[in-house]
Structures are given as structure tokens and as C-alpha cells.
Amino acid sequence: MKCVRCLSDDAYKAAEAPDKSGAWELYCCRTCNYGWRSTEEEDIVNIEKRNPAFQLTPEKMEQVFDLNKIPELRK
């Protein structure tokens, strides 16, 4: 399944409405860790209508930094 943000094919259905009403499904992406609900606004769930400023490309993802550096292992 395609992620609406990074467009990888790494998204999956992670949850559905717990009252079994089928009111919504929730999807997650294993590549960019985005999450979205099927009932959100069009400019969130529809790739064509999303704000380009928040879309991701592999290049953009590469530029992201580690908030906490990985320390040296103790000897």
C-alpha cells in the first residue's frame, strides 16, 4: 500500500475503529513512520491534494539529522 507522504509502497493498515463500526481505518508507513486515518481531511488523505511542503522524498529524508548522537560503546 502506498504511503500518502513518502509515496513508498511500505504502508499498511495498522488499526480499525475498535467499536467494530467500520467508521475508520488507520494506516502507518514503515519507511517514514507517517500515520493517517481514513476519515481525515482531503488534503491529508489524498496524495494529489496534500501540501507539498510536508511531502517527503528519499533526498529529504536523508537530510534529517539524529536528535541524539549515538554514543561510543563503553569498553
Binding site: 480499525e16 475498535p18 517514514c32 501540501n51
Partner: peptide, 15 residues
């Protein structure tokens, strides 16, 4: 996601 009423706090949050 099914045990807590999680929600997107601002529209363009990452999840």
C-alpha cells in the same frame, strides 16, 4: 491506535 483515542494534534503533524 485501538486502545487509546489517539488523534493528530495539528493538521500536518507526522502522525
Amino acid at each position: 491506535f485501538e486502545m487509546l483515542p489517539l488523534h493528530r494534534i495539528n493538521k500536518n503533524d507526522g502522525g
